[in-house]
């Protein structure tokens, strides 16, 4: 009973914080009246939406996790730039060297949000596009299939992201 009460308050404050930071970013002003209006309006919005916005509340803000989030962003950006040069190489070569197919693998993540982040990252990494996610199984369209075995596909496509995501959502 006590536990659920605390988590409701922490969820509410987490949502309020996020919505208020968004308000500040959209108005780009720190006039006292705009800040007060923002505090009021973001509180009303978070009262209506905190149940479906977050499931973990303020626990998601610990500094160790923040370091892993920054590390994830760097891993993701490097993969994104690599993916673009890969696509540029394929598109500019006259013979279109592709061998496409759809492969599958299983992931160890259980949070829905983490699975969404992993699927998005897979879409933006070299030569892969996530077609569907059913439970823990990911179905990936791959531009240059090296092996249709799911273990090989997992190591080639998703391992570098999943290692960091497992540390954030443990």
């Amino acid at each position: 009973m006590m536990n659920s009460k605390i988590s409701v308050i922490s969820k509410l404050f987490f949502t309020w914080l996020i919505v208020f930071v968004l308000w500040l970013a959209f108005t780009t002003s720190i006039e006292i009246y705009e800040v007060l209006t923002g505090l009021f309006i973001s509180f009303i919005i978070s009262l209506f939406t905190f149940k479906s916005f977050t499931s973990r509340g303020l626990k998601g803000l610990s500094p160790i996790k923040l370091i892993y989030v920054i590390k994830y962003i760097f891993v993701f950006l490097i993969a994104l730039v690599k993916a673009n040069f890969h696509v540029a190489k394929i598109v500019l070569s006259p013979s279109l060297p592709i061998n496409p197919g759809i492969v599958e693998f299983e992931s160890k993540l259980d949070s829905d949000f983490a699975k969404m982040i992993l699927a998005n990252s897979i879409t933006l990494t070299p030569g892969t596009l996530s077609v569907d996610v059913i439970g823990n199984r990911f179905y990936i369209h791959w531009l240059e299939v090296k092996d249709s075995d799911s273990e090989v596909a997992f190591n080639e496509i998703a391992k570098q992201f999943e290692d960091v995501l497992l540390k954030i959502y443990s």
Partner: peptide, 9 residues
Amino acid sequence: QAGTKSSTL
């Protein structure tokens, strides 16, 4: 594949 990666970056 080609469209989404390049237009995102």
